[in-house]
Amino acid sequence: METVLGRYRNLIVLVGILFAQVVGLAVQVKRTTETESSLLIRVWAVHAVTPLEKGLGWVQTSSSSLWRNYLYLRGVRAENRDLKQQLEQLHIEQARLKQDADQAQRLQSLLAFRQQYISETLAAQVIGSSGSDQSHSVYIDKGAHDGLKPDMAVITLDGVVGKVLRVFPYTSLVLLIDDPSSGVGVILDKARLQGVLRGTPAGEITVERVMADEQVPVGEKVLTSGGDQIFVKGLPVGTVTQVKPGAELFLSIHVRPAANLNKLEEVLVVTRKVEKQAEPGDAGPVRASDILALRLPSVPLKDAPNAGDVSAEKSPSDSGKKPIPPAKSQPSPENPPR
């Protein structure tokens, strides 16, 4: 007996270790995620790796910030001029959009429509990844001490990134939307079709549960629908790149994410959402033409063919659908609105 044990000792240890891990796996697969998150080995692993990641991240950010902000300022003047021009254009666009938003808000108030809004976000730095191709997740430098909780939405200015999956004292694990185990309730912007956004093993993202007889054009914007109770409605998710027949009478809609998930540096965690009902008072009687009149008091009517349309002197009914002229000057205290 001793000879047999001695002879096959290595193999017996191998089988024993493998058996223990298989049993451990089987137990975990049956458990919920919340129970799993408290495993000590995860805490140790995260505590061993993330301080290094944070430290190196800090060094990298500091050195690149020093370079960008103090040493490499070539072309900043020209860029600043371009940005000012863009800002002027955006002011006009904002005025037009505000009119549309006000109108929508008035309609919503009439329908007693309740909607969630993002009321508080927390900026966080991406410090590391899971280190596995099969696990599309990243670590951020904010955790329970900063008020983070599981299932909080994580976004960038470009679009949706994912959700907080596990929270450690000073770091958190964020599950990206391109992971096969993630799921986001989405709506196609123009077609108004709802579906579920999921990652594929190949690292792509697709919209599922859209019937095969629906028409979905390539280039259609994909937004969050708010149905998953994690992301508020209307956040940009991506753009449809390919539509083909999928399994079981559903379409397979491939989406290019709005946020660059491969080059994440800074993200925003939505720490607070509020649900409010639009009130008639919110919309107010302000029209786009009034806002433009305030912002562009010095635009001469005769120089711009359509300028008269947006002037406060014109009747409100005329101003609604006319094109808005480009801005000629910044609003200033010396040019009071008429």
Binding site: V13, L14, R42, V46, G131
Partner: peptide, 30 residues
């Protein structure tokens, strides 16, 4: 035995950083 234990610990540690169940990398590296 040392080799398989090294594989087990490295694999489990790698598993711990992912959001998946512990043991997948553990078994493979063992």
């Amino acid at each position: 035995i040392t080799g398989l234990l090294t594989g087990t610990f490295i694999g489990l540690f790698q598993d711990a950083l992912t959001h998946q169940a512990l043991g997948v990398y553990g078994i493979a590296k063992t």
